[in-house]
Design a protein around this nucleic acid. Structure first.
Lengths: 190, 190
DNA sequence: GTCTATATGTAGATAGAC
DNA sequence: GTCTATCTACATATAGAC
């Protein structure tokens, strides 16, 4: 807190964030992060005891950014439907990254599910955050099955992300995004 | 062909298939496959020049199994809707594995998208096989947007698989499978 | 706080005896 | 065809000088 190293710590987290997304957690080495930041490998252990701790910091950082984005959606409009539509825009806004590397939340979760359960649980937190926020929007409208609708919306986004990345298809993303917006309207308009 | 080593070759492929699914391609070592089969590490290079070649053989093996399964769906009924419903049962039949490790096709594709493009292209073949088969079923019914419907169905399955694995939720799988069956009926019943 | 040098383990891949 | 021994590279992690 307030010490000189905080800048370096954040630079490590930011570089790891991008690399974990683009290459995966397991395929990202300390050397990769060192190359990206200019900070020597050995120095990382001053900030983090293990690679797991870097992942922890990355997930926390992602959740902070996500919360900010969701707060922005809330600030834009009082209408829950409008908030959900804004949220769903994420898919098309990030379409290039999604086509290249998939959804950062989904792919990290899928990767870590095959390794350490502790790491998988940590990565899951981002999904929980999303699920609760989306549920809250459906709740506001007064829908009794808000949590199921939240899961359905997240599943739609994840499914599109997996196929968009597999087939590298921009048009598919655009079409699917429109389908999702139609679905949101369908569920939220009485 | 017909030589003594074919049995060992298949044992390697089968063990690698399971390990690539449960631990991921990158996280599976030759030692892991050796432990699973009892065949020494160094022996693998008699059958495969590189690890990539093992992946190639695994994907080919998976496509053979998948083709067999799809042929089985076709043999069961002449009704395209019935075939699609049978196909969608895959989700609930394999629910335990899906919850533990996700969809074998989707997670492999997502993993390899972050590494070698060549490997990703290879893994994509399984998706292409599925897409074409599902499209063919919708075609049979006479739907003009058969390919879009095929992508939509695959996306639904992938989305459910990602979330089922992330949240480890059996009830969610069962409910979503029912939703998918309803969707298939909705699209195929005039 | 920052850096270099290094320890230790294990990965994929090879050589060569049998 | 099958196996052991080994090579080379690189992974995470540590020790200790500055």
């Amino acid at each position: 807190m307030g010490t000189k190293g905080d800048g370096n710590r954040q630079r490590i987290v930011d570089a790891a964030d991008k690399l974990f997304y683009r290459r995966g957690y397991n395929q990202t080495s300390f050397q990769d992060i060192s190359d990206a930041t200019g900070i020597p490998r050995g120095n990382f252990y001053y900030y983090f005891k293990t690679k797991d701790e870097i992942l922890n910091a990355v997930v926390n950082s992602r959740m902070d950014e996500l919360s900010e984005m969701l707060n922005h959606c809330e600030a834009e409009t009082d209408d829950a439907r409008g908030r959900l539509l804004l949220f769903s825009n994420m898919l098309e806004v990030n379409q290039d990254k999604v086509i290249e590397s998939g959804c950062p939340i989904g792919t990290l979760s899928s990767e870590l599910a095959k390794n350490d359960p502790t790491l998988h649980t940590k990565s899951k937190q981002t999904f929980v955050l999303l699920r609760n926020w989306v549920k809250q929007q459906f709740d506001t409208i007064g829908l009794s099955n808000a949590d199921e609708l939240a899961m359905d919306l997240l599943a739609k986004l994840q499914g599109v992300a997996v196929l968009a990345c597999a087939f590298k298809d921009v048009e598919y993303v655009k079409r699917s995004h429109q389908d999702i917006k139609n679905w949101i309207n369908d569920k939220t308009l009485n």
